[in-house]
Design a binder for these strands. Structure first.
Lengths: 332, 332
DNA sequence: ACGTGTAACTTGCGCGTGTCAGTAAGGTAG
DNA sequence: CTACCTTACTGACACGCGCAAGTTACACGT
């Protein structure tokens, strides 16, 4: 019918509705302190719908100086599906607030981070990794981009979103302590890039040990290979460790593999508990106890915080404490 | 020192360099057919660097009608780390072509897809799932957004990027056939959302069976639970199936778990091969044979295709056939 | 001397918005 | 009748950029 090759602009809508462009803008944004009679409003909305009008984000961004995009800089360590689902929920939650969520796989080495957010003029940037102070002032200076950092550790210097990583570690250790283990090990990840998450979790384990009157955990780095893990297992065994908290489920699987190499079996010789509850956790031998986190709840809180920060309001308080829970299977 | 609260614009650079705004634009974009003496060029570049100038993407997009953003609509099934690393490589590859890659976790139910790309005016949209024809013409009409779809199946209707999923299935079946199995099973994923990938893989298995003179594979849907998988295993066993190709490594792990329930062991009672080579594959019992794909190469080809499509050139031909290879472990 | 050509610029337009500053019509108060 | 307010609108500007068209200065060929 109408083979439109040009973009439909608000001027087109205005023409179709027989009003001025300004009126269209007022109607479509229901600008406060503007009195529009219902009849006119209807005409404008009709025309907009009929023409399939969608405002140009570019023009709107140019005009207002900020867009409704929230940019998430992904870390350069491989993101598993738990982060994937978190982002998915986050995207949905932000959409409910009228914002568009996008993620950029960090290729930090390739391009400076600045190039990315300058190319998008997002309303907010959400990062998993530390951001340099100069970077932060630069973003603030660019006016359009308040910053939010998601870290495992809470830092006093600025307001941050904190997924309670410490609590994750504490839950692991408490579970092992209450099931009769009094000498714990910690399976630390091989990849140095995930240290931001590993450190607070380990801190949580340490805290729980101290609270339960146990000696501090025996920390060993565990690569994702049976042979390497076997060495760690042997070391724990030699130190009378009977329960191991792993950084995550994959590391836990490595520990189980290492035990197999040494002819040991969980939970008899060594109890193992992971974090994340990835699908393989329930499929391995023995099925892996782990810590599951309600990503929906985390996403909801993250979204609320982001919205508040963008609006310049102080961030809301921490999420309720029941985001994570222990999933008991047969490895403990 | 200089607490700038306003954005640095090309006008600022022009003023600092003592030239007009147009000259700045010509220098920074090295516009063809413009003769700029080295001295002037240097002055401009100096000023730009000193002021930390970054062009406004919004303005540029508004002016030129298209941005340098490539938007990837993620599927609503959970993305594993293999997709994660693919996106990471893709982002790097596109950055090398001067484009910015962002991903949007598809919350298809929440917002219509149109709202997303209209909010970003990307140069291209990369989707994993089918896109309706009207959607496509709408994107084309919006002028700014050529479309590229990444599917497992190649469709004649339009140019698509094809990761050779069929080949993945063929590799699995050929490996089992050459190791002496002559009655194969296929472990189909429980999640209907991944059918786009599952179908071509299964087709590949069927083709390989036919080519090897074997009967068609016995297809069973396998949920990611030991009990459910056990039923499938029993069914295969009853039909004298001796080797199973699984949709991916997780499904393969489920099959292994199901065998355990039935007191069977791989590869003796049933050989199992997965796809993806996720870390748990080498950590489970027995270590899982699988198909590994070189994501770097895939990303490179994807990036090249996207760039070509944006430029309006025909897409380059298929990638070389050696993107995937069999990783032989102990489950076959 | 005069056109022609080229180097090295500058001026100015318009992309599509949001919004401020009007303005004409109509009502109400004094 | 005048002064003033409200309703219902419209005109015009600025956001930052790319680029087409124009301008000046100077060199060259005849």
């Amino acid at each position: 019918m109408e083979a439109q090759l040009r973009r439909v602009t608000s001027a087109d809508v205005a023409r179709a509705a027989g009003v001025s462009r300004a009126t269209v803008s007022y109607v479509l944004n229901d600008t406060p302190h503007q009195t529009i009679p219902p009849e006119t409003r209807r005409r404008v909305l009709d025309a907009a719908a009929r023409l399939d009008y969608a405002p140009s984000a570019a023009a709107r961004t140019l005009r207002s100086g900020r867009s409704d995009v929230v940019l998430c800089l992904l870390p350069d360590w491989p993101v598993g599906q738990e982060v994937g689902t978190l982002l998915s929920h986050l995207s949905a939650a932000l959409a409910r607030h009228g914002m568009t969520f996008v993620a950029h796989p960090s290729t930090r080495a390739d391009r400076p981070v600045a190039a990315i957010w300058k190319a998008l003029t997002p309303a907010a940037v959400l990062a998993f990794e530390e951001i340099s102070d100069e970077e932060i002032v630069a973003m603030r200076a660019a006016g359009v981009a308040p910053l939010v950092a998601l870290l495992g550790v809470s830092r006093e210097r600025r307001r941050e979103l904190e997924v309670p990583q410490q609590r994750v570690g504490r839950l692991q250790a408490e579970h092992l302590a209450t099931t009769g283990h009094n000498r714990l090990g910690y399976a630390y990840p091989d990849d140095p890039r995930v240290a931001i998450f590993a450190e607070p979790r380990l801190d949580g384990v340490r805290a729980a040990c101290a609270a339960a009157g146990l000696p501090p955990p025996v920390v060993r780095t565990v690569a994702l290979e049976p042979a390497a893990a076997a060495d760690a297992v042997a070391a724990w065994h030699a130190e009378q460790v009977t329960g191991v908290c792993a950084y995550n489920d994959e590391v836990a699987l490595a520990v189980l593999a290492g035990m197999r190499v040494r002819g040991l079996a969980a939970p008899g010789d060594l109890a193992v508990i992971g974090v994340d509850d990835i699908p393989p956790a329930r499929l391995c031998e023995p099925p892996l106890s782990t810590i599951a986190t309600d990503q929906t709840q985390v996403a909801e809180h993250l979204a609320a915080t982001i919205v508040d920060v963008i609006a310049g309001r102080p961030a809301p308080e921490r999420p309720g404490p029941v985001l994570s829970r222990v999933v008991i299977r047969e490895s403990t």
